[in-house]
Design a protein around this nucleic acid. Sequence first.
DNA 1: CAGATTTCAGACTCTTTTGTCCAAAATAAG
DNA 2: CTTATTTTGGACAAAAGAGTCTGAAATCTG
Lengths: 162, 162
Amino acid sequence: MLSKSCIYGIQATIYVAANASQEFVPISQIASELKISFHFLTKVLQQLTQEGLMNSYRGPKGGVALAKPATEITLYDLIGAIDGTSIFTECMLGLPGCGIAEPCPAHEHWTKIRNELTVIARRLTLETMAKKAGELNVRLTDEFRYAQRLFPSIKPINGAQA
Amino acid sequence: MLSKSCIYGIQATIYVAANASQEFVPISQIASELKISFHFLTKVLQQLTQEGLMNSYRGPKGGVALAKPATEITLYDLIGAIDGTSIFTECMLGLPGCGIAEPCPAHEHWTKIRNELTVIARRLTLETMAKKAGELNVRLTDEFRYAQRLFPSIKPINGAQA
DNA sequence: CAGATTTCAGACTCTTTTGTCCAAAATAAG
DNA sequence: CTTATTTTGGACAAAAGAGTCTGAAATCTG
């Protein structure tokens, strides 16, 4: 569904958004907390800065930060910046120009799903996901936390208890 | 979204289902009409026969045929046989065990989409898609037909005009 | 039986994705 | 100015996906 690059990018961006206290968050910190290869994540985040979703800063106290308020970045933006928007537009069978005029046999059904996916991705903001990530039982990585805070450095935003 | 193998498998199966007159359809015929590499398609269809969705027969007059009536094979079966069912079950961020207890930040939204996709894929039968494929303006490949029948050997099933 | 047809099985190549590594450029702090 | 930190950029390797090819096994036809 989503590429590894895209998944890492989404996870990292949520992490940065949830970590509102730091101005610039070093990629090394993100990588170690999310258990992602540092060098690989570096490239992914470079792409997000090139797409204008993040700002970066070199040197000590440097790192990456959101280029816009978390309310103005959506899941759609993140996916589009890394994997491209083809998931939201393409035919299930990959047929170019599949539409009402010359559809594939599954066109109408797939279109329905695709449109709902698009609506949801456009509505789901980074702020919403970051708030979720601050809740006790919600996680960003494959590690279960079981009532422990996985990222002690991140304070719960939405009144979730630690 | 779907792998090339899976797309080819779906296209080929629809073709076979739409081609109800032939008992066994040679893979070479499917490959040439759908413009798919013969050897590659061979492997994909082999997988479908191993999964019990198709029967195959060697030698002259041989080829592949549906192992079950087209009403009893769904899009879900085809995808599951080639790409596996992970699309229908997995977390958007790929987190193992992502569920109500320990969800990812996008869990509830993605679950909604995923469930609808599952319902649609389970309901969409090969018969329905094959009927569609028999209609004049519907196509299985990236070639537009523009009011020409792309596969003259296949007769329209559902009263579509040629 | 001989020859033609077709699937089966495996080896092989090419491309894309994923992951690793290293040196250079920018910046902060002493 | 020097050193440590951090992103940038590119090269490189490993793994997976996509596609090609060859020979063997099965089966029909004559």
